[in-house]
Design a protein around this nucleic acid. Sequence first.
RNA 1: GGACGCUUAGCUCAGCGGUAGAGCAUCUCCUUUACACGGAGAGGGUCGGGGGUUCGAAUCCCUCAGCGUUCACCA
Length: 728
Amino acid sequence: METLKNGQPYDAKQVEDNIYKLWEDSGFFSPDKLSGTQINADSMRINADKRKPFTIIMPPANANGNLHAGHALVMTIEDIMTRYKRMRGFKALWLPGLDHAGFETQVVYEKKLEKEGRSRFKMKPEELYQEILQFTLENKKNIEGQIKKMGASCDWSREKFTLDKDIVTIVYQTFEKLYDKGLVYRGKKIINWCSKHQTSLSDLETKDAEQIDKLYYLKYGPFVIATVRPETKFGDKYVVMHQKDPRYANYKHGQKIALEWINGPIEATVIKDEAIDMDFGTGAMTITPWHDAVDFEIAQKHSLDKEQIIDFYGKLLPIAGEFSGMKITEARQKIIEKLQAKGLVEKIEENYKHVVKRCYKCETLIEPQIKDQWFLKMESLAKPVIASIQANKVTFIPKHYKKISLHWLKNITDWPLSRQIVWGIPIPAKICEKCQSAIIDTTHPEINPSDLNGTCGKCGGNLIKETDTFDTWFSSGQWPFATLQAGQKNDFKTFYPTDVMETAGEIIFFWVARMLMLGLYTTKKLPFTTVYLHGLVLDAKGEKMSKSKGNVINPMELIDKYGTDSLRISLVIGNTPGTSLALDENRIRGYKNFANKIWNASRFVVMNLKDYNPKAKISLNTAQKKNIKELQKLVKETTKLMDDYKFYIAAEKIYHYFWHTFCDKIIEESKEALADPKSRTATQYMLLEILTNSLKLLHPFMPFITEEIYQQLPIKDKKLLMIERWPK
RNA sequence: GGACGCUUAGCUCAGCGGUAGAGCAUCUCCUUUACACGGAGAGGGUCGGGGGUUCGAAUCCCUCAGCGUUCACCA
């Protein structure tokens, strides 16, 4: 305390941790404390229980490492929103949480295992689970500390973790309800398989990669077919062409043709389907339904046989004959050599450019596989959300996300919910070993079915526990209502639906769209009314940060160097929603200078207030009145901008006012007036008035320094700046 | 291939119908009693190209070009 008087430049390190403790101890991070305890005159009029709630649910950070620059932006923007609304007299709740982040965390942990020369495939699932749990809980603590470092004024008493028992219970209830309504089903469908991670992935968890391969034209009986993947062709016994293709008019649908193939003679069947592009290749192709999504669809449509050619480790199965057991990459060339020897290669087109799917984590080539998986039917869930968005019941900031969301929702496909990993919420079900039917069991998800004398109702077969876990987004997709339903008694009633969902534009489909669907379905209400999407935080050169590039900026280091306030305001000014931001240290340094400027201007004012008598009668001169008016104009403009979520302009305006109007003009001009006893008191009043209000306007952006200074101002009955009323 | 976005001062970006703005960088001057993490001032842009609407366009419309993001089952 009294740090303002020591004449040193502003030192964030001396201030920030103490101030955070002051806030935390005050209890005002909780909206409960905000009701009825306000004693300053301005808020006396407000009846505690009539305060309107304002709620933001914090996107649960992945508890598997450190806060990154993107998190810093999340914490800053959401804290600005929360602090602003709190000062406006709302019952502000910002509910923090962390995510076990299923696949993401397991991948991080597997990398750690790899470094230690271990492998998850050599561990018992329970062992692995316990280890990751330990790891996650440690990281959870770490991240909580870092969130506090950011100055986040969230209500820690309501903190939630996606693996909390009450959360899991709610997730199970939702799952069961969806199952009972026939929206969840288990079935053999083609899925994206990552052979490294040994799990299925949703479409969103794969990324398209352009690559150049050879396109082989192979003689298939009387036809020539084009393929980049000859290694999948062993089981191909259907040749497909368009009904209208004149080249194949002589061939009838269902016609059998005997022909010589890779490992000997086979019988092929002609299939006519409009999915075929007559302009591509020869207009005829064979299909591999087990390993290609398009082929799978065709096979489904015509009830064709499906055979697995490649196992889950990317090796050829016995159907490949002499190639059995080979990795597909090495098999390809050898198969072509054999086909060439048999004279079955018509030609090879080099440099064929096409797009393949890769695992978004390890870039392993995705191998489509048919596997029993849990799916959620999305169409009927998407429909009401589409209607709500079209009726503008959800506001998107920036607004072009409305179209993007609608487009995705209108083309939605079923969501594969199950993952073959241990780290996650177990799917509460039992599977019949014999007939593969599934039974939902949310009451005893952990119990071995043999303890229940469980047998399959359909075939009498033995029941075993489902070992798959949920896609992590299935639980986080329920986050807004789950956190509040699992919370204190009236929380759901008071705070749901929430006001703003602020998160990265990147995860609009992964998360935002799914929250809207699951929220509306489960609670009959949209979980939030405003979606604020921020862009990526890039490095100073505008490149995406990545560990492999080595350009990751650690926000904690920036805080150490420049202070949290400087980092926060540099993340906000000029950063329009949805646009990515290049984080340049020079900028942060510039705002560190600003913090120092605030510090010194405040010191000047405080120094000149030693003899200030607030009760003395004052009369402002014309120039001073003008100054106050100008401040009021700024308050009005800023308030409007804050209400419009235009923090990037609001912050800049206050910055500009404080430095170039208050410091450069008002303070400079006041020096003379302070020296004159006749005008001294009025000048003191004016300076204190402008400084106090400026601190209030700045507080959401730079909470630490403003609170520290406020605590040192000679004002009677003051409390915390955090709960002071926003100026009018 | 579709959708969306971007193109404004050397750099990073605001502005989005009324005679060009900020931060950083550059240059000149100033150890002025809050601050050199400072002050006073200066230079620098035909707002991607072309067309249109308008009394008036970075700002609205059309079109072209480049960049980026995202979605998509062409073997």
